[in-house]
């Protein structure tokens, strides 16, 4: 088990969003999380990554308790998080974004890792010297995904990588995620609204509704989209 979550309760201020979630992820697994907005998907990722202090419950990473640990230690231990929306530094160039994201590592590693990112996303190499804020929406998303790879994470939390992208670009980004999983054998917890893409990428699925897990298990490829409305 790379990640075990036991009875996690959390939220913002006095707003309780997560009402006791428990699930686990195996090595190399891709788990899709779906549920409507406000169901608590983003809150879950933030609580797991240490951006929000969990109120109750336990988070185990490779059997170590990491409940409430700060993001900087999590990053060093190989956990990465891609936030929703603009997960990059718009005023820095593409290359600078990559450099910053493997802060504390030496030049050689930087070169190797950015090469990995460029292999996955060749377009970024072409735009190396461009300010990240001037990239197109799809390129920005690739950039964000690329940034999470710089510490060669074994566990990745991706928050809506398809958000706001054109269908064609969504396909592309999802293929990249499949490729990442294939190449680095890492575990990915994916929050997505785009169910078709979740089906393509994830082996397991968690459905969250009102801060509780209402379904979790193997994803049935025959599951029809229209049936999903009941979870939304």
């Amino acid at each position: 088990m790379i990640l075990e979550v036991k009875n996690l309760v959390g939220g913002y201020q006095n707003k309780r969003v997560l009402h006791g979630l428990s699930f686990s992820m195996g090595d190399g697994e891709v788990v899709g999380t779906i549920g409507h907005n406000g169901a608590g998907k983003t809150t879950l990722l933030k609580s797991l990554f240490g951006l929000l202090p969990p109120w109750e419950g336990q988070i185990l990473f490779r059997s170590h308790d990491i409940t409430g640990r700060k993001p900087d230690s999590n990053v060093k231990e190989g956990i990465a998080y891609m936030p929703q929306g603009q997960g990059l530094f718009p005023d820095l160039t593409v290359m600078e974004n990559l450099e910053i994201s493997c802060f504390g590592l030496d030049r050689k590693t930087l070169k190797k890792r950015s090469q990995q990112v460029f292999e996955l996303f060749p377009i970024l190499e072409e735009r190396k010297r461009q300010r990240a804020g001037t990239l197109s929406g799809g390129e920005q998303r690739m950039m964000s995904v690329g940034l999470t790879l710089m510490h060669e994470p074994t566990l990745m939390f991706l928050d809506e990588p398809s958000l706001g992208l054109a269908p064609r670009i969504v396909q592309l980004v999802m293929e990249n995620i499949i490729e990442i999983n294939r190449r680095f054998k890492n575990s990915i917890l994916l929050v997505e609204q785009n169910f078709e893409q979740v089906k393509r990428v994830a082996g397991k699925i968690i459905v969250i509704k009102l801060g509780q897990i209402v379904f979790s298990g193997i994803l049935d490829p025959a599951l029809d989209k229209r049936e999903l409305w009941k979870y939304f």
Binding site: Q193, F195, K225
Partner: peptide, 14 residues
């Protein structure tokens, strides 16, 4: 709305 397949397509992605 919820019966329309093309809307589910958009909402949940194609």
């Amino acid at each position: 709305i919820m019966k329309a397949p093309e809307l589910a397509e958009i909402y949940f992605g194609g």
